[in-house]
Design a protein around this nucleic acid. Structure first.
Length: 476
DNA sequence: CTGGGGAGGGGGCCC
DNA sequence: GGGGCCCCCTCCCCA
């Protein structure tokens, strides 16, 4: 009997004793056998689970007990694989897992998927299912969820319709192909949703830790990861920015795409906008409000705890790490996860008051401001020599500022560099004052701007040399 | 074409 | 938990 050897082959299989000709209608395809067999096997296992036959594993989810088969869980979930293979010896005899990080309903969806290949996703449960799948390290489920979300958001049509509905679509069901369940390599799955043609999320490929793609993510997966639910907020940022002005590109596109090329047209500043009508301002504010709302909604839908047992310490106690629901990255601290999540959500809460550029972290904003707008480096821009606060003349180029030594200033020639009168030149109203001209209450935040601020982008305007008393410019 | 430097972004970890 | 520092990496510009 060479049935086994023939499995997987697409050519028709002829049973032993079968006439070799004249009865073609009795030939059948081994692929059909495989599918049928797997389907029956899965059905049998599912039946056994429902009847609690041969169940050797108990899973407690928020007090609700689920019975299942250890080998099935092992084959389906990286988490259970780790639990079964790395746990203390005693665990192997009687498996009991307890979860409080997702609901019984969510685990029901997961378990049903494991035993049936049917993933019952809806707009209400997709985030939690994805988070649970992430926790349980079920990459195929994660991918189905991502595809579900992507298809719901229709993000590939980013530029086509800014009025499109951002809400997730109605309930639908993703079906796993039989036999794909245990395949970690299964990234796209049988669902019909295809990834968008263009990526517009931030480039993670240069992440030094390489957390994406380490254990589970192929390139295709990376694409999906980057366009996971966070895309919602991400897109909102991009949308608003597109509306806002062309000079400030979406914060979520790869920098390679954002950077101005040599021959690229000069950016438009908000002030020089061709039609900065009042209605447009209102639209921008409205879009911002929607953006904030949607981002809040996104965060609100995230489960409160996204933890995972990374490994066991020498006392066989699990070490808790926080796992990003959107990628394979784990961190020790929840605060670090929160910070990390910004790279998925596109959230940039720290805008530069001087140039409107936004940053994910305060320290990046500070660094940017000090480098670009404050000329904090005591180095001559031209000859790279060290200068002091006395010898280093500050050159203003739009909102950019840098220092030049006396020699270089003379070499360039003051006539070529519009010079601001030293008297009263120390102040930098646009940078240190609020938009309404009032001084910021918190000098620490003096270089930050609110979302309502509408300051000119660095326009590369006239160069200005000024003697600056840095003590006045100190931010903190 | 290539290497250096600037700028930005992200992770780990300390306070 | 937030702020901040350090380090590293990547991208881009420019000589």
């Amino acid at each position: 009997m060479d049935l086994v050897a023939d499995l997987g082959s697409s050519r028709p299989y002829r049973a032993p004793g079968e006439p070799t000709h004249h009865q073609p209608q009795r030939w059948f395809n081994t692929a059909d056998i495989t599918v049928s067999h797997q389907s029956n096997l899965l059905k049998q296992l599912n039946q056994q689970r429902r009847q609690e036959l041969f169940c050797d594993c108990s899973v407690l989810v928020e007090g609700q007990l689920f019975r299942a088969h250890r080998n099935v869980l092992f084959a389906s979930s990286g988490y259970f694989r780790m639990l079964l293979s790395q746990g203390p010896e005693g665990l192997l005899d009687s498996v009991n897992a307890t979860f409080d990080v997702f609901s019984p309903e969510t685990f029901t969806v997961i378990l049903d998927f494991i035993y049936s290949g049917q993933l019952d996703l809806s707009s209400h449960n997709v985030i939690e299912v994805m988070s649970a799948a992430s926790y349980l390290q079920m990459n195929n489920v994660i991918n189905y969820c991502k595809n579900f979300i992507k298809s719901s958001l229709d993000i590939s049509l980013k530029d086509e319709d800014t009025e499109r509905c951002l809400s997730l679509s109605e309930t639908c069901s993703f079906t796993s192909g039989i036999g794909e369940e245990s395949s970690e390599q299964q990234q796209q799955g049988p669902c019909s949703v295809s990834p968008p043609p263009a990526l517009w999320t931030r480039d993670h490929s240069r992440s030094q830790t390489g957390y994406i793609g380490k254990d589970q993510d192929t390139d295709a997966s990376n694409l999906a990861l980057k366009t996971s639910p966070s895309s919602n907020a991400n897109e909102l940022y991009a949308e608003v920015d597109d509306v806002q002005d062309s000079h400030d590109p979406p914060y979520t596109v790869p920098r390679s795409e954002r950077r101005r090329g040599k021959g690229a047209p000069k950016r438009k500043t908000p002030n020089s906008s061709s039609c900065p009508g009042q209605q447009e301002d209102l639209d921008i504010q409205e879009a911002r409000a929607i953006k904030a709302e949607k981002a809040d909604e996104l965060y609100a839908t995230l489960p409160p705890i996204m933890g995972m047992v990374g490994h066991f310490n020498k006392d066989s106690h699990p070490i808790m790490r926080f796992k990003c629901p959107f990628c394979a990255h784990t961190v020790k601290r929840k605060a670090d996860l929160k910070r990390h999540l910004r790279c998925h959500t596109g959230e940039r809460p720290f805008p530069c008051q001087a140039c409107n550029k936004r940053f994910t972290r305060l320290e990046h904003l500070r660094s940017h401001y000090e480098t670009i707008h404050q000329a904090s480096k005591l180095v001559c821009r031209k000859c790279k020599c060290q200068v002091t606060e006395e010898t280093g003349h500050v050159v203003c180029e739009g909102t950019r500022r840098y220092r030049m030594c006396t020699a270089c200033v003379q070499e360039v020639g003051c006539n070529n560099l519009p010079m601001e009168s030293l008297e009263g030149s120390n102040e930098e109203p646009a940078l240190l004052l609020g938009v309404d001209g009032e001084e910021e209450g918190d000098p620490k935040r003096g270089w930050m701007m609110t979302d309502d601020d509408d300051l000119a982008e660095d326009s590369g305007a006239d160069l200005i040399i000024q003697q600056v008393d840095d003590s006045d410019d100190e931010l903190q």
